[in-house]
């Protein structure tokens, strides 16, 4: 449940676009290998478009450099956690 996954910020959203939940910080569209998910930047307000962030339960919790992010993705995919984007969408079985 504590697993966070890296994604790349593609767009900073207006309040209206952010899916109906009022936001305590900026909200961004983040790409997870082709799956786009809205993510709050309340805990990483310095993050901008094009940057990689580590995302847990809809919140960016840290910035990552691109190399590290790519490595983590490769590991997640190789280890069968390639279902990660599904999990992000469906809210699947989050181990911590």
């Amino acid at each position: 449940m504590c697993l966070a996954v890296p994604g790349k910020i593609v767009e900073i959203l207006d309040d209206d676009d952010s899916g109906g939940a009022p936001a305590v910080g900026p909200v961004a569209a983040v790409d997870f290998q082709g799956t786009r998910v809205d993510v709050s930047l309340a805990m990483a307000p310095e993050a901008g478009v094009g940057q990689w962030v580590l995302v847990h339960a809809g919140f960016a919790i840290a910035l990552l450099d691109a190399d590290e992010a790519r490595q983590t993705w490769e590991y997640l995919e190789a280890s069968g956690a390639g279902q990660m984007p599904e999990q992000l969408k469906a809210g699947g079985d989050g181990g911590e």
């Binding site: 709050s40 809210g91 699947g92």
Partner: peptide, 8 residues
């Protein structure tokens, strides 16, 4: 997936 979804 996110606590924000519960608010929504």
């Amino acid at each position: 997936y996110s606590a924000r979804d519960a608010v929504k």
